[in-house]
Design a protein around this nucleic acid. Structure first.
Lengths: 343, 343
DNA sequence: CTCAATTTTTACAACGTTATACATCTCGTT
DNA sequence: AACGAGATGTATAACGTTGTAAAAATTGAG
């Protein structure tokens, strides 16, 4: 049987509340009393019952992190960073994944999946602005990632348009003129929108055609989707000299197809990915990629949730995380300026 | 303000307990009453308070999953499978990662990281048998993975020795004679022990030398560690004709080094990995790998924890999950028998 | 040495739920 | 019409904690 405050109190010969005071480091307890109670606590191996504490105080010490897909290494690494950041504040993390499906995201955002949490960090894919508008306000929500919401929630992201432009700029600097985009989403709400926009803007700014025939839409965002998209573009008879992919797994899937077709990377086609996932550094051709500061994103997300939990009503902010362009073999060519991101 | 049973009871003009009965689908409630109460529940938007329920019932509806490393895609995929399996039983998953460090694993196993859980699924790396021996027994523990414990806990794993033997057998069938092993752990307690043993046994059984000079120890188990280990072997002047890696990331790291050195896979050196991670299917050379049934492992783990939670004292079992050898380009050669695993 | 001011400890009431034990109501049998 | 059995609803007491307010102990000033 678990020992409770009552047991400790009996053992020490004091009241329950006094034990509680010791446990909670209440100010007005004499050193002698503190000592005596502590001895009983240690003797009995008392551990506070968090359910009771939660019921009483209304706090659980748990924040939820809902990500689209754990199999995607970017999200796995991000999860690790959130868990570590939360641990620093004595919080633990409840993990959920939505598959990037609107229905699941809705469930999560409204707290139906987990009702034991103090706060929620959500990385939405399909969720619409109006889906969040009439959300019950009880637990603070922090949004992660690229969607562009106009809502009273903190939102942490890198500047996707600028980052995408930096990637495309890099390709243009290499002398590439026909840059394909892989990974516009086929399903509703087009979450890759911002990166496509960056692609379009940068090409246009460079006086090149943003040829929509070189944009391949997909259903998912994994290796296989990248491979399918690349196949699709090549089969359509197009032969771009560069590919910018929505993320690294798609870029790697695309490179596999290029390899099968006998096209060389980067000589025939240069490739840039997004997320700077570890596996991109160990392929036969290492992958140039936009590298978001994942540790910072995790840290900022946790701090935002906790701040909102503690303060009355701070301003709702959009926080920009840092990023870089990590240049590797898949875009090796004539040397070019670095693509350092904005802060 | 959150609505409670009391509010619903007042609204419906019945007692609190009757509302509770409806919420919990208690058998003896007249349809009319159920209807009436349900209407009030819907009208007020009542949601049960889990803290109170937990306090009363002693259950949280949460199980913890502690993995060494989320960045490793095998564990990420495993986590996804556990989350899904748990959701099927209305359980949610608290995720933790230990870094494979004994101290962290100890903390987790003794419940100091999370005291709100009904059960724990732990995938230990460094933890010793005696570390678990005097564990407080209050929450059921299920062990995952390859360690060989002699303890009263359920343990779910594939037969690592047999799987490793199947992998090495496959290489031998290809005509390879000098098979290196990458990824014996340098740090305490050698968790890769079983796979090394499989490697050794199968070579010996085939009348070949299990040359310990071809075993490379590492500190970690990521891409970079595989690359370092491969480099180490090649720099030592050895030129094996096959490599069996502790896991896929290490195999991929090793293949990168082989690529840099101008060695062809599989012509010069065949490579087999372990875990059958998605990225292995999209490199320039796709990777042959031992493929554990991750979905089954996740499902079995969750079911074991919940069974132990509900039953009095079922037998503590060692459960074997299925596996296969997925043959791909990195061991392409003369056709050979399939390496189907045992059940 | 007394009394007020202050510090330390205590008793008790929540928090929202479910289990227990009891009260009531329904209905088929005598 | 009376009775009992079974079905259905209710009052009350936990679960273990902390906030509040009051009691007790201690201190300091006159």
């Amino acid at each position: 049987m678990r020992v409770s405050l009552k047991d400790v109190a009996a053992h020490a010969g004091v009241s329950i509340k006094t034990v509680s005071n010791v446990v909670n480091n209440y100010q007005h307890v004499t050193p002698a009393m503190r000592e005596r109670v502590q001895r009983s606590i240690d003797a009995l191996g008392y551990q506070p019952n968090l359910a009771a504490r939660h019921l009483r105080k209304g706090r659980t010490g748990i924040i939820a992190l809902a990500l689209p897909e754990l199999g995607n290494p970017y999200f796995a690494e991000l999860a690790a960073s959130v868990i570590d950041a939360a641990a620093q504040h004595d919080y633990i993390v409840l993990l959920d994944h939505t598959g990037g499906l609107r229905e699941q995201e809705l469930l999560v955002s409204q707290g139906f999946r987990a009702r034991v949490i103090d706060g929620l960090i959500l990385s939405p894919i399909e969720l619409e602005t109006e889906d969040l508008r009439d959300r019950a306000q009880d637990v603070p929500l922090v949004l992660l990632g690229e969607r562009d919401y106009d809502l009273p929630y903190d939102h942490i992201a890198i500047d996707n348009v600028a980052a995408a432009r930096a990637a495309v700029r890099h390709l243009i600097d290499l002398g590439r003129r026909e840059v394909a985009f892989i990974g516009a989403r086929r399903r509703r709400s087009e979450p890759a929108q911002l990166r496509v926009r960056g692609w379009r803007e940068e090409l246009t700014a460079a006086g090149l055609a943003a040829d929509e025939g070189l944009v391949a839409a997909t259903d998912g965002w994994g290796h296989a989707d990248g491979a399918v998209a690349m196949t699709h573009i090549l089969d359509s008879g197009r032969r771009p000299d560069a590919v910018f992919a929505y993320n690294d797994p798609m870029a790697i899937g695309a490179m596999r197809v290029l390899h099968e077709r006998g096209l060389r990377v980067p000589e025939d086609i240069a490739v840039v990915g997004f997320d700077d996932v570890i596996e991109g550094r160990f392929g036969a051709v290492t992958l140039t990629s936009v590298s978001p500061d994942k540790a910072a994103i995790g840290r900022l997300a946790v701090e935002s949730v906790l701040a909102r939990l503690n303060d009355r009503a701070p301003e709702h902010r959009r926080i920009w995380a840092d990023y870089q362009l990590a240049e590797r073999e898949s875009t090796l060519g004539r040397p070019t300026g670095t693509g350092r991101g904005t802060a």
